[in-house]
Design a protein around this nucleic acid. Structure first.
Lengths: 367, 367
DNA sequence: ATCCGCCGTCGAAGCGCTTCGACAACCGGC
DNA sequence: GCCGGTTGTCGAAGCGCTTCGACGGCGGAT
């Protein structure tokens, strides 16, 4: 009856392989899993049969018997206000890394909410969960704690107790930006941040960056104002104009909003402020954006790929019941490009040989 | 032995529910699936037990027994040259629609290639496949044909025989853009297209749009030049400058490249050409982009959400073995905003009227 | 030689669910 | 009041795989 798996499903079963190779079903299984020693000879015979028959293990049966689905869930924020390209980079990195660990990725959207998580996890559709876009007081966090399945958060909630979180150290990133500007002699700077919805939602990264900026500014005797900013050209323009109207002496700008990068530059041009001669701009954005802007932007990239890889790797370790750190923060690195320069005390003559000239006076005290 | 499912897995099994409700396992199953009549009384008792125990059916067991995983695969292009936000919109729409049909979505990347598809499908991890970013001569197409699992392509390969495809009618979209410009009296237009890599890869939509543009231009006696364009500000700028240098009399621009939208406008400003007074711009891009640009762009949106929904719905119908059309093309609609205007015959008073002046000689014969 | 232990393999017992056939109990029609 | 047809429920047979215990055979230690 169970003699001819091919008939029912069109796919050969492990029994077909076993019969073809003249071994027991369990032997085939052990060849595949490597959990028991199998002689070279037998292994080769089995592998040959597998290839010949085009056998692929049935995922459902495997999951049922082994209690591991070899699938992880990835919960993505598919809503506005979140940087789409960064999310895509995450997703790519996660899928790629997961495959390296022989796992597939089930895609969930945030808006399915906790119920979706529960369904997936309780039904054993997935072995573990990766959650992006975590808010400071995220409704899913308590659920994750009680879920009984390993999970890794990308982002930091207010209380990380009993969780595993990875993220860029945005607090440090904010500091780094300010330190860079301060080092160039800028004394009045502004943070043009995420859309206000992101702050309202208490998404950690926006708050942490802002805190880092404010703190470093304090520490370096720099005056800093912070301003949220929507993701459309018109609002960016309005914010920039407003900023420079209220604070005409601003000479440094930290921009944490990919969508704003282009429009900010346009707006500055409109105001007759040149980058970097009149205003230095540091962006927190994907490298790709920074490279493609003109002038190329000094930036602190969000290492989406690295974070994705780390997250998967942490999750895998949890699946193997290895201990992992509660919080993993990646050190930001600032790449200097063409959008930042020494703060000038004097108006700039003309041409652009001047940039170099200015470096001299402003940067004398550089340590 | 199988008496206490809770012990082994921590999750109650259908047997626990049955015992608790005082019915047979099969009865519980029928309550859940509705495939046989169950008395009101029994049903309620069972449902109460389910809720009380917090029962969730085990996905693996269900898939094994029913031969349906209730999961579909979504193959996304996670590489460059493809419009990221559009892809995200697709993904969101697909996940959301799939959930409405009680299915989950497994995320695959294109770069796993055909082997990934085979693994997923043969292993019965998924019931069907959705493939995005189909190329004219896509290596995965033959595989899909032989796979024995329902699939839907988002995009059109050269030969659609035996397949199911959904897409925006890009050919028509190209025509619509040209018709709009022609109707406004423009006689020299250009298509600023996708990155050349996209054309080389023979991704259908780019070619189809170009063909539509060329054809409609011919038909309307409009001169059209087409030009690929990379996704960075510098290249966009260069292309625009080059276009207007070689064809100074250009007065209409069709842009099919989200990333180019902002830079194009900047470049035109740089050339002293105002939108829409000197140059009319029509974009093929997400509505969101068109809305947020300034001036707001007349555009043909890519209805990613609609296409995603359609794709899922088609796939579901195939899963139920219902017949579906081979090709579903969505009619493009053009939204007129502020970036297109009538071609001028007279020089525009203020500003640098030179641009407008040039229109006179070239466009006298407009019908 | 003899025994122990290891290696390589096998058979069988599930994993938790769906589904098929069986079968009481009950209905109305003649 | 007997029969055919529902209606509601049950039991059991798998679905295809993993894993555990068993076991024959072989080599090295005794």
């Amino acid at each position: 009856m169970s003699g001819r798996g091919r008939v029912a499903s069109g796919q050969p079963t492990i029994a077909d392989v076993a019969r073809h190779a003249g071994v027991a079903v369990s032997t085939v299984s052990y060849v595949l899993s490597g959990k028991r020693a199998i002689s070279e000879l037998t292994r080769n015979r089995v592998l040959a049969s597998i290839r010949l028959l085009g056998y692929h293990p049935n995922a459902g049966a495997r999951a049922l018997a082994s209690r591991r689905a070899n699938v992880i869930a990835l919960v993505l924020p598919l809503r506005s206000g979140i940087q789409v390209p960064v999310v895509m980079q995450f997703a790519t990195a996660v899928v790629t890394s997961a495959r390296r660990h022989d796992h597939d990725v089930l895609l969930l959207t945030s808006d399915e909410g906790p119920e979706g998580l529960r369904r997936i996890a309780a039904g054993a559709l997935v072995d573990g969960v990766l959650v992006m876009d975590v808010e400071l007081h995220d409704a899913r966090v308590p659920l994750l704690r009680e879920l009984g399945r390993p999970s890794v958060l990308i982002g930091l909630p207010a209380d990380t107790g009993g969780l595993t979180c990875v993220d860029l150290d945005f607090h440090r990133a904010g500091q780094v930006c300010v330190e860079h500007l301060a080092g160039l002699g800028h004394r009045r700077i502004a943070l043009l941040g995420a859309p206000s919805a992101v702050y309202d939602r208490e998404t950690g990264f926006a708050h942490r960056t802002r805190a880092g900026v404010v703190e470093a500014a304090d520490r370096h005797g720099v005056e800093a104002v912070t301003e949220p900013c929507e993701e459309n050209a018109a609002d960016v323009h309005a914010r920039v104009v407003e900023l420079f109207t209220r604070h005409p002496e601003l000479s440094g700008l930290v921009v944490q909003n990919e969508a704003a990068v282009g429009p900010v530059q346009a707006a500055l041009v409109g105001l007759g402020r040149r980058v970097p001669y009149d205003v230095s701009v540091v962006a927190v954005c994907p490298d790709q954006f920074a490279e493609h802007a003109s002038p190329r932007l000094t930036s602190v990239p969000v290492p989406a790929e690295e974070i994705g890889r780390q997250a998967v790797s942490l999750l895998m370790r949890k699946l193997h019941e290895e201990p992992v750190p509660e919080v993993t923060l990646l050190e930001p690195r600032l790449t200097v490009r063409d959008s930042t320069a020494t703060a000038t005390a004097e108006p700039v003559p003309a041409g652009d040989g001047t940039a170099a000239a200015r470096f001299c006076d402003g940067t004398a005290a550089a340590r």
